[in-house]
Design a binder for these strands. Sequence first.
RNA 1: GGCGCGUUCGUCUAAUGGUUAGGACGCUAGAUUCUCAAUCUGGUAAUACGGGUUCGAUUCCCGUACGCGCUACCA
Length: 491
Amino acid sequence: MPKKIRTRFAPSPTGYLHIGGVRSALYPELLARQLGGDFILRIEDTDQARFMPGATENLCRTLKMLGIEPNEGVWIDDSGKIIERGPRGPYIQSLRKSAHQAYAKQLMDMDKAYYCFCTEERLTEMRINQELAHLPTGYDGLCRKLSKEEAQKKVDAGEGHVIRLKLPKEGSVVVDDIIRGKVKFEWKLVDDQVIIKRDGMATYHLASMADDHDMGITHVIRGEEWLSSAPKHVFIYQAFGWELPVFAHLPLILNADRSKLSKRQGDVSTESYLDKGYLPEALINFVALMGWNPKGDQEIYSHKELVDLFDLSKVNKAGAIFNIEKLNWLNNHYLRQLPDDKYFSLILQYLPKTESDLELKRRVALLFRERLNLPAEITELSAFIFKPKLDYSGISLTWKDHTKEEASERLKTAKEWIEQLDDSMMLDSKAIEQVIKSKIIDKGWGNGDTLWPLRVALSAQEKSPSPFELIAIYGKTRALKRVGETLEYLK
RNA sequence: GGCGCGUUCGUCUAAUGGUUAGGACGCUAGAUUCUCAAUCUGGUAAUACGGGUUCGAUUCCCGUACGCGCUACCA
């Protein structure tokens, strides 16, 4: 029986989940779902200094909203409390400290690691000197030369220390990556990495590999920034004789200037996109297609379709710039697909609180639906509808070279038409359109010279929905009031 | 500086040792239309550069350029 696929997303609780993180979570999730495997969420909090309270909750909440749910590991319950589920916990890395230390000890017993007593000051000075001499930077191996007895004596004497990997000094390693193929590194250029810090906590390199192994992770899917340190990871796996996972280093998501996506440039917090009204479906669709494509001309994919189609080996190698225009287009698409009730519940908050007529608000929301990339845009687009009185000073009420008198004449007549409108058709803009257009024909007028003044009278906007739709929205009384006020204004 | 990765329209991408190098977003023109939006139709625009290999390279190889990542007791 083939081994069960187990993938994971392992963020650090140092801030909000950013867009790149969404993809780092999505791809492993897609893969696990497709192959009937497990998707695990592990929190990597070994850096106490960068730990941010609330970050784990935020990460989980955001993933939950996006519909990327792990079936094992850290999660958040409905009351907002962090929970852990699954048989291979704890899934919060700092809680695995003693296991990491035991692994480090084993590595030392195998002579694959050693104590280092060098101070920060010495290390800094060493690095500066290396830079000045234009030499590659890296640990000079001073403590590597210490005998085990000497080192143990220092430790017993209570001297502060870290544990470093004892990497080969010659030869090379090949990291096999499913996206990039075989990547070769010379051992002599790989630094003796610290794996246990002075505070006893493991660094990423040991902690992540140990946990991945202990949790049975089969596919390590992570950002390209890890490729350079992959040799150390391979070393650790091999030192313990563990079976290597499949490595997949994802291309980075970039700012417009092609630098790594960062908080300095634009908004990268996924939660803020959600808050702005970008729909989870749009975000998932968008992020999935950055750096991967199932071929063909389809642009819209549901999460389910992505699960079926995803193929790790077809992920691109080059980084991708975050293109908000396309996200907007996708959001417009998904907004229009939403069931009316759901759509309205998203829009309501952007319509005036002072307006109490919920049914009116609902019809306004539906009226502007296809023009929206984001829910908030409706506020400005529809503001005129809720104003008690319109200001016509900034816009022409006359069609082309028509005169004010002609416009007034049209409006006066249109007012009568509105009055005569059958009450039963007041909600039906198509019916209203039919009636009014036929009356225009009867009069021998043109659509433009009549409809333009009418629409502007109702909206005071250069651009707006049609006069028929506006009459339907307003109802007879308010529509007549608007036209009446326009007539006053024209005098 | 060293090491690693990368490079197809402005952006996201597809394709193949032989194609008019395809799609989408954007932009743009037209149709529709009272305006806008939506919709439909059309247009715009790309294989970084230089060498090879080959009958033929965008595709394979080498080099150059450029970009990015890493170079922490951060992840």
